[in-house]
């Protein structure tokens, strides 16, 4: 198991190096000069030059350059080199937009996104798995059709549209809206916190719960056809015990796999939902900085999200062994 984890981590590092290079190159290939974007209409060339220098955009892209004389290769300061150094040192520089240290901003905003993700995943599991079981157990019944139709609806409705509706309908009908423009911490006011994070988490969870529900249903149906399930019934176990104790655990492997992958998707969805519900999390931060072509922040966040996805995948793979003891890593 240790060898397996170590090998996966090493592969992860290689992936991250490629990811960092790809992100760096792609962002710099896209047309548009951040210094010009930052400058106003009446911006003079020396203003642009000053901003370019301030942002380090006047340095070469990569630390290696080629020359016509020996030793033909020169190493020097570069934008990529500076950025990679900053990733390791933790000094991520200053945001072009906010003019504040990026590390501090990430530190402040991470808890918001983290809570949103955790709440979303909890809701996803709480909604998706039980309804998947119900749907499988009562296959082809009215309940099954109702659950499946709802799931298709959940998958079809775009979350930005649903999020907007969740904001504008209650205020139009009851004059109510979730708190906006400030973050209520869970420790200070748990109810207020849930009022604030509940609606966006529910919106994000709807689509993922629908997917999980469908997957849990099909997986459970598959498992319920297995011989050992028949054996369990034959030895006189109640149907409830057959489904929950023998069927459910074995049917959860694909569900866990998808849940792990959904974390990355949810981080993407959070960009929009945090905007709509005014939650100052990482998604909103990246969105703002992306508009501003703040290379440093966007590159850093891409690599961090990449790292999270790699770690989540690893965690999912490792968890298989718990769900199915027959699985061994060697």
């Amino acid at each position: 198991m240790q060898t397996f984890i170590l090998r996966r981590l090493m592969v992860g590092v290689v992936i991250l190096i490629f990811l960092s290079l790809a992100t760096f190159v792609l962002l710099h290939v896209v047309p548009g000069d951040p210094a010009k974007l930052r400058c106003g209409l009446s911006c003079q060339p020396e203003q642009v030059a000053a901003i370019r220098h301030q942002l380090g955009l006047d340095k070469p892209l990569f630390p290696i350059s080629f020359s016509g004389s020996l030793p033909f290769i020169e190493f020097g300061p570069s934008q990529y080199g500076d950025w990679v150094k900053s990733l390791f040192s933790g000094d991520l520089g200053v945001s072009q937009y906010y003019q504040q240290p990026v590390a501090t901003a990430l530190q402040n905003r991470f808890p918001v996104t983290f809570e949103l993700m955790v709440l979303t995943l909890i809701l996803t599991v709480l909604i998706g798995v039980p309804f998947g079981i119900v749907s499988a157990v009562f296959r082809n019944s009215a309940v099954d059709y109702l659950v499946r139709t709802t799931a298709i609806l959940g998958l079809s409705v775009p979350n930005f549209w649903l999020g907007t509706l969740v904001l504008i309908v209650p205020v139009a009908v009851w004059g109510y809206s979730p708190p906006l423009g400030r973050v209520i911490s869970f420790s200070a006011d748990p109810i207020g916190n849930l009022k604030q994070f509940g609606p966006p988490a529910a919106v994000l969870a709807l689509a993922s719960a629908a997917g999980i529900m469908r997957l849990a249903r099909s997986s459970l149906l598959e498992v319920m056809r297995q011989d050992y399930m028949r054996t369990a019934r034959a030895k006189g176990l109640k149907e409830r015990a057959v489904v929950l104790r023998h069927g459910l655990k074995n049917s959860l492997i694909p569900v866990v796999t998808v849940l792990g992958l959904q974390v990355a998707g949810l981080l993407g969805g959070a960009i929009i939902i945090e905007q709509i519900f005014t939650l100052p999390g990482l998604g909103q931060y990246v969105f703002q900085e992306l508009l501003y072509k703040d290379f440093q922040v966007v590159q850093t966040m891409t690599v961090y999200v990449g790292a999270i996805v790699i770690l989540m995948n690893l965690a999912v793979d490792v968890s298989y062994a718990w769900f199915d003891p027959r699985i061994r890593y060697s």
């Binding site: 906006l180 005014t278 703002q288």
Partner: peptide
Amino acid sequence: MTVKIIADRSALRTAFQSGQT
């Protein structure tokens, strides 16, 4: 005077309608 950062137009409108601004 509290200036609340509310990025989305629908949310801005909602905040006003609900008396938060």
